[in-house]
Amino acid sequence: MKLLRWFIGLILIALIIAVNLKYEFSPLMRMVNFLIPSCILCLWRIYKGPTPADRVVAIDILGILVIGFCGVLTVFTDKIFFIEIAIAWALQSFIATIALAKYLEGKKFDD
């Protein structure tokens, strides 16, 4: 049963790679096409997560993925403001995660 699920996942990943290679994309567009499935996996964990803590972890990971996205888009489009968005997002995501963790813990924010 476990092995079957592993094989289904392997086939899905192979399908993503095959679709990616079939159509004509530039090399960077192919890389962006790999970031989108990772975001979908994170969203699935946010939807499914059995406890609130799982959702907080998935939100944190999604924030870091968006920073990587901004980095790739800087090279892809040659617009330099994307890297500034990345820095601002890193600061904001860190604060948001700390606040969510404090909320989860059920303590005051000045502790």
Binding site: L28, M31, L35, C42, T51, L65, G68, G71, V72
Partner: peptide, 22 residues
């Protein structure tokens, strides 16, 4: 470098879905 980074991003998200507890 960007390709290696995106591969590790994808593996990390796979781990987020696959592993058993928080």
């Amino acid at each position: 470098f960007i390709g290696i980074g995106i591969t590790f991003d994808f593996i990390g998200c796979l781990g987020l879905v696959r592993l058993p507890d928080l």
